[in-house]
Amino acid sequence: MDRQEAFAAYARLMRRRSIIVITIALLCVVAFALDISTGPSALPLSNVWAGLFAPERLSAPELAIIRQVRLPYALMAILVGAALSLAGAEMQTILNNPLASPFTLGVSSAASFGAALAIVLGFSLPFVPADWMVPLNAFLCAFGSVLMLEALARRRATGVEGVVLFGIALVFTFNALVALIQYVASQEALSQLVFWSMGSLARATWANLAVLGAVVVLVFPFSLAAANAMTALRLGEDRARSFGIDVERMRFASLLRISALAATSVAFVGTIGFIGLVGPHIARLLLGEDHRFLLPASMLTGALVMSLASVASKLLVPGTLLPVGIVTSMIGVPVFLALILRRPERV
């Protein structure tokens, strides 16, 4: 291979990546439409289209189903998938650990615990609207757990396995604490808590969507701005620092983003597992680890998997809407195992 051939191969690779990203984005749109059309009363895709773009062609009940129920669900699936997957991708890089994700390392459990605490104790802060206490407390607990993980990951003696084991310990600890809270909770609080621990899109509202959407839109540009530094960090911490990157500061900023993404997601839909693990892995296998591609692509693959899981949650048991968290685990685990066991040839 001479220089010109290498340039040509590079141009082909870039083209291939663009095509892959566009294809995933298109698949997201298809999954999104399918998600709206499936449910207790199946709607043909033509009605989905009309519901979104030509409301005068539909009856009032059909329009209400699409606009008030299906659309918020489907949008929530896309947003949560994108948020958790982006959080997972960043986490895998800054902790230098392919098994890191908000779910596997206990960040989601911590957020669940924070939310449970807020629900049961019903505490409030001055100047903070009551509706915000649950997500806010979820965020604080998530951030706390992320800080602990980071402190541990920074100790050289801990090693990669140590961080994962500590994360698993966090999962068990917070799950036990949530179970404890459930045990002493009132009947009303209990039903809310169960919703958390299962993970479901059923409580998607336009207000929730607006908050999560705002978090994703605010966080993403900062993630993208750190993309080059993250790519460098994959080549080793010493190397990244010798490029002039303040690794500590970058890690801290990234952890803030991860907490915001994971905690807001968990605050609105409960614990949804494996998206933050599977999304980035699919993106990495398809596109490599140049984070300028990896981060946006992770969001897209996460959104796609989540959207498909949402469709499956309505179809798997006819007449029943399964909590989507159950489905993501059911799809996520085999996909993940397949990814680990079969490493395909790459260009």
Binding site: L13, N228, T231, A232, L235, R239, F243, E289, D290, R346
Partner: peptide
């Protein structure tokens, strides 16, 4: 230089230039 990284040699070099 770590081994388990999905970057090409060219990307390793361009990545360094972009990051530094």
């Amino acid at each position: 230089l770590p081994q388990q990284v999905a970057l090409t040699v060219l990307e390793t070099v361009t990545g360094a230039l972009r990051a530094s």
